[in-house]
Amino acid sequence: MAATFRPRRSVLYMPGSNARAQEKAKSIPADAIILDLEDAVAPDAKAAARETVCNSVIGGGYGGREMIIRCNGLDTPWGVEDVKAACAAQPDAILIPKVESAEMVHELESLMDASGALATTAIWCMIETPRGVLRVQEIAAASSRVAALVMGTSDLVKDVHARHTPLRLPMLTSLSLCILAARAEGLAILDGVYLDLQDAGGFRDACVQGLEFGFDGKTLIHPSQVDPCNEVYAPDAAEVDLSRRIIEAFAEAEKEGKGVVVVDGKLVENLHVENAKRVVALAEAIHNLQEASA
Rank of each mutant, 00 (worst) to 15 (best):
D227E: 10
E109W: 06
E239L: 10
A122T: 08
I127Q: 02
K98M: 01
S101K: 04
M151I: 02
T76N: 07
E231L: 13
H161G: 03
G116T: 05
A162T: 04
E107V: 12
C125A: 09
L195G: 05
I96E: 02
R168F: 03
R65A: 11
A45F: 07
P130R: 00
C229Q: 01
K24H: 09
R50H: 10
A253P: 13
W124M: 08
C125T: 02
N270K: 14
V268P: 02
P29G: 14
M14W: 11
C207V: 00
A181Q: 11
D82M: 07
V136T: 06
T219V: 06
I286F: 11
S10N: 04
V157I: 12
K98L: 01
D199N: 15
Q290Y: 07
E23V: 14
T173H: 13
A93Y: 00
R183A: 14
K26D: 12
Q225K: 05
A32Y: 08
L74H: 03
I33F: 08
V262L: 06
P166Y: 07
D236Q: 07
H272C: 00
E23P: 01
A234I: 11
E81Q: 13
K266T: 07
A102G: 08
V268H: 08
G201D: 09
A21M: 11
P97M: 02
R278S: 15
E252P: 11
L197V: 10
E291H: 13
D44M: 07
F213G: 08
A47L: 06
A184E: 15
E107W: 06
S144W: 07
D205I: 04
R135N: 15
S56V: 04
P130L: 00
E23S: 11
D216Q: 04
K158M: 09
M14I: 13
L156T: 07
S176Q: 10
A200N: 04
G217L: 03
L220P: 07
A148T: 04
G186Q: 03
R20T: 11
R244N: 10
S224P: 01
L177K: 14
S293W: 07
L180R: 13
R70W: 03
A2W: 12
V146R: 05
K26P: 13
V157R: 13
D216A: 15
F250M: 15
E51L: 15
L12T: 05
A238I: 12
E212N: 13
A122Y: 11
D216H: 15
G59R: 10
D113R: 14
K266L: 06
D241N: 10
M112T: 04
A102S: 09
I58M: 13
R163Y: 09
V41S: 06
A85N: 12
A40G: 11
E103P: 03
A45W: 15
S27G: 11
L271M: 14
K24E: 09
A276G: 04
A42H: 06
G259I: 00
P170V: 03
V262D: 12
S154F: 09
P170I: 05
I34R: 00
H164K: 09
G214S: 04
K277D: 08
